[in-house]
Amino acid sequence: MDNSPLRLGVPVKILGNPDLKSNDARRATSKPHLKVSLGYLEAIFDYLAAHRITMYRMSSDLAPYATHPDMPEFHGMVQESAAELASIGVRAREQGLRLSFHPSQFIVLNSPDPVLVKKSIWDLTSQSEMLDLMGLGPEAVVVTHVGGVYDDRDAARRRWVETWATLPEPVRRRLVLEHDDLRFSAADVLWIHQHTGVRLIFDHQHFWCFNPEQAELRPTLQAILATWPDDVRPKMHFSSPRTELRQLVRKDRKTGKAVTVNAAPVWTGHADFVQPFEFIGFMRQAEGLVFDVMLEAKVKDLALIKLRPDLVRYAPDIAARFGLGVAAQAQLEAEEAGLLAAE
């Protein structure tokens, strides 16, 4: 069992330094390349090291147009970048940095459309290949969702299982499956795991947004963590829901004019920051369980930098699980103040 501190991670865009780019986002006519993205990634690694952040989700567009069906000139860029990928993989291991990908919602393995499924497998294969060329261990994963319901949830789940059997070995080795907030619950992905062996991701906000089985949190979390091998630390996702009033512009049906109306929050929306008391409560429910936490707050690294001193201040027992001692509080608060206005 790995007894090292639990990690807190952030996804893709770094907001503490807006000059940092997560990928080469130039248009195809400018010949963007994975090698350029990896240069940007090196700078992000510097930022993560400076702020002692040890888990990071890379952009799913790291290799631009690498799987675009109509642009074959980009298809070889992953292999062309093998040396650079190996080098940055060494850097990640030396830095103790856990890396992952989370492809977009357009990656759908249970679609009735075989063309979409084939394209989705191609994307997953490309991202798995990059992790392999980086020389990363089995903790470096590619996260996906089940996909669409297509008017028949059971058939949709079965199609995912059927597609799993056709996936290339590198994809099956890297792929992990996450339940979502609208379509497929934790119970659904546990059913898929039973039929495939795929590892699973627990998402705290999704669990509360979509749990038609009314499953209990800790037993569900335990069951999902148990889908990982004993020698590979699981990871999970945490975010807080947005709570603020929304003001929406809509057309008045009678007058045809645009009017501003007040609207309640949508609980599937992610808040800018992590609500610390919610996080503390969850971590106490998860006492004794071992997993890393990817924070999916809207302000990304700023949310992590805000959460750490909050944990030391309000829950030293939880802070200690993440390697944050009370003695570090002043340093953490100074770091927070350096990136965020004082309270």
Rank of each mutant, 00 (worst) to 15 (best):
P168H: 10
P168S: 10
P168L: 09
P170A: 12
P170Q: 05
P170T: 05
V171I: 12
V171Q: 02
R172T: 13
R173Q: 15
L175Q: 05
V176C: 11
E178C: 11
H179L: 05
D181K: 01
L182N: 07
L182T: 03
L182V: 07
A186W: 00
A186T: 04
A187M: 07
D188P: 06
D188M: 09
V189L: 06
L190W: 05
I192Y: 01
H193I: 09
Q194E: 15
Q194I: 08
H195S: 10
T196M: 03
T196F: 06
G197C: 09
R199I: 13
R199K: 15
I201K: 00
I201A: 01
F202H: 05
D203A: 06
Q205P: 00
N211R: 09
N211Q: 10
P212L: 12
E213M: 11
Q214S: 13
E216N: 10
P219D: 08
T220F: 06
L221G: 01
A223Y: 07
A223H: 06
L225M: 14
A226Q: 14
A226H: 11
P229K: 08
D230P: 05
V232Q: 11
R233T: 15
M236T: 01
H237I: 06
F238T: 01
S239N: 02
S240K: 00
P241G: 04
P241Y: 04
T243K: 08
T243Y: 01
E244V: 12
L245I: 07
L245E: 05
L248Y: 02
L248K: 14
R250Q: 15
R250S: 15
K251F: 01
R253G: 12
R253T: 14
T255M: 04
G256P: 03
A258T: 14
A258K: 15
A258D: 15
V259Y: 10
V259R: 14
T260S: 09
V261G: 11
V261D: 13
A264S: 10
A264G: 10
A264I: 08
P265S: 03
P265A: 04
P265V: 07
V266D: 08
W267H: 04
G269D: 14
H270M: 10
H270G: 04
H270T: 08
A271K: 00
D272M: 12
F273A: 03
